[in-house]
Structures are given as structure tokens and as C-alpha cells.
Amino acid sequence: MVSSERVPTMGVDKHWRCYVSPAFVERTPVDELAGVWMHEVAHLLRDHHGRAGRLATTDHHRTNLAQDCEINDDLVADGIPLPGFRVVPGDFGQPDGKLFEEYLPHIPPTPMNHDCGSGAHGHAVPWESQDGHNVSPVEAEAIRRQTAEAIRAHGRARGKLPAGWKRWADQLLEPVVDWRAVLAGAVREAVAWASGALDYTYRRPSRRATAMAGVVLPGLRRPLPRVAIVIDTSGSMGEAEVNAALSEVEGVLAEVGIRGNRVTVLACDADVHTVARVTKTADIELAGGGGTDMRVGIRTALSMPDRPQVVIVLTDGYTPWPDENPACRVIAGLVGKTPPQPPAWVEAVYIR
């Protein structure tokens, strides 16, 4: 706690110091002071300054208002009294229960009338100080987890929690990672690994050749890998999930410069039905609908004249796998709620 004549009401910095105006304390009822205290602490618990740093906007006042909307709807739902200057989602025609990132596009430029500090929007403000104890990132995370566990225990005891606080506690204690980000990361990493192979070429002479008159030295090149996508088209596969995963793979490959004749798609159930080099998802024909054996698709991909360095298998996982690593990177995009675990040499991404 930092007593400050410069802060208008209360605010927090990203080092978990809370600045309090003595004049504001004098004129504000105790129950409303408790509400403001909970509001400011919520900025820190919900890592608002960290999340704000990942946004493209530079209007930290609008960001602060959106964050206030995320917090205050839960405080109001829990019957916590707040001063008259409170901001709620309804002020901007928005429903309760959303994250501040969702509220932000709906908040117009508004004159600055309250600033919660860098602990909210991440920008240092004049009334913040460098003196006093800093809460380290490790301590901050421990405080968040302890608070989330207490909120859960409170909910079990009383049977009622504001939706926003329950969602925050659940996500902190049981984080859900977006499968798209995991799949994209796995594909990028595999492509980078395969691209790391260097080869010599006389099409690009070595820069050292000028030092050796009469000798042509080859240069080095880093070729783009070839990628095979084996799609499980058995009857147990949902077309919507397969298309979603395929679109993600297609987007990542295009982003790293792999497309056209470097990507081969194989539709496979217990047999390979189609093999095609495609330039866009719409070109793919998903033939099949029988049993499932992805070994056939992987074997066919690796026996092609242009052998792939990366094989991506989109399947529900109910398939036999090769007995050993086929000497290339294999990524399995596993579709469904409870797909079985593939062998350890397969990089598994669970597509929920």
C-alpha cells in the first residue's frame, strides 16, 4: 500500500503496489472502499497488464475501460457496492461475462476520467513510484493460484459464484491451450527441422571461390522440405473437424513458404484412395469411409518418388501405427474427445 496525494482515487502498478489517495479514503464509505480495493486487485489477479501488452492498440484509456467492464460485472453480480463512477458492460450496450479483449472494439474514444495505473493497462503513469517492495512474477503467479483455489473452495461451499470469477479460476487451474496454436507450432518446428538439412549446389557459387583462382567451389543451399498430409477418411471421422485441422495445416505451410507441388495429400481409410498435389483445401477429395489403417497412408507417402521429410496425419487415433519411427518427422492431429495415445515417436496434437 502506498499513500499518495497524486493519485485521484486508487490504482495499482504492475509490481503489485496499490496507491491510495487519503482524501478519497476520507470521503468514501468503507463498503465502497472495499469494492474499489477488490476492483484494483482484480486487475492484477487477471494479469490485465500482461494481456494488454499483447494488443495492438495504444489507447490505454479505452483498454482500461474495457478491463473495468470485465471486472465490475462480476463485482455487481456478487452484490459488492462500488462508487458512482463505476463502468459496466451495459454502458456500451454489451452483455456481462466477456473478457476485456472482447469489449475493447465496442468502446469509443472517451475522455480520460479515471486511470487504474500500469497494473491495468501496462503504461506507467505519473503517480507511480519505484520505491517499496516489488512482487516478482513468480510470487504473482503463486498469489493468483492461491486465490483461484480459494475461489473454487468458496464456490463449492456456497454453491454460487459470479461467472467471470469462476471462469478465471478454472482457466488458471486447468488451462485450455488452443489446439490451433499447438498444431501450428508443431508444424513450424518440424518444417524448420527438415529445412535445416544443407546441401551443396553449383547453381550458387561459394563466396570463398574468389580466393582460389581456377577452382569453382559449390555454395550451400537450404531446400524447402516436402510435406505429406495423410487424412483419415474412415467412417468415424467428422468432416467438419478434418476440414478445420486441414485449413490450419494449409495456412501454416503457406506461411512458411511451402505450397503447390511440395505438398501431397493422401485420403486413406484401410487403403489409400486418392493421392494429389494440391494448392488449396477446396481441391481435396475425401474419398473412403471404411476401416482405418494409417500405416498404409504413411507407407505410401514414404514410397513416393519425392519422399516427404514431414508427414502430418489427421485422424481420430483409432488406427494401428508403424512399429518404428519411419526416419522422418510424423505429426498426428488427433480429432475427437478421447483419442487413444499414439506411439512415443509421434508428435501428438489433440484437436478438441
Rank of each mutant, 00 (worst) to 15 (best):
P108I: 09
K337D: 10
E255K: 12
E255Y: 02
P108R: 13
Q341I: 14
E255G: 05
P22L: 08
P343T: 04
V296F: 03
V242K: 01
S206L: 08
E139S: 07
D91E: 02
T300W: 05
I331L: 12
D74F: 00
D131P: 01
A169S: 10
P95W: 11
T233C: 11
R203D: 15
D59L: 08
V230E: 03
E70W: 03
P343L: 04
V30Q: 15
Q146I: 03
A66W: 08
D316R: 11
S21K: 09
D31L: 11
P108Q: 07
H273I: 02
D73M: 05
A344T: 09
D178A: 14
V335L: 13
L302I: 12
D59V: 14
V349D: 09
V36L: 10
G159T: 06
G214A: 08
G291L: 04
D73H: 15
V30W: 11
V138T: 07
T300E: 13
D271M: 04
L104W: 07
R222G: 01
G159S: 10
V125L: 11
M304Q: 15
D131W: 06
T315D: 15
T264S: 08
L246D: 00
M237E: 01
H15S: 14
I258P: 00
G219H: 13
P81Y: 07
A181G: 05
A276S: 11
R222P: 02
P218S: 13
A327T: 14
I312D: 01
Q309R: 15
Y318Q: 11
V256H: 01
I231P: 01
L198W: 09
R221F: 03
V346I: 12
L198V: 10
V182S: 10
V125M: 11
V275N: 03
Q171L: 13
R62H: 13
G185H: 12
H154G: 00
G214F: 08
T28E: 05
H43P: 00
S4G: 09
R145N: 04
V296W: 04
P205N: 12
R352C: 13
R188I: 06
W127G: 08
V182F: 08
T281M: 00
A245I: 10
A142N: 04
D316Y: 13
T274Q: 05
A184R: 10
W127H: 07
V76P: 07
D115V: 15
K98Q: 14
M237R: 00
H39A: 02
R46V: 02
L266Q: 05
A153E: 14
A190I: 10
S4W: 08
V296N: 05
D74G: 14
A209Y: 06
G84W: 12
L99C: 09
G90V: 06
V76D: 06
D232G: 06
I258F: 00
V311Q: 03
Q94A: 06
L224E: 04
T233I: 04
V176Y: 07
R6Y: 03
V330D: 09
Y350T: 12
T63A: 15
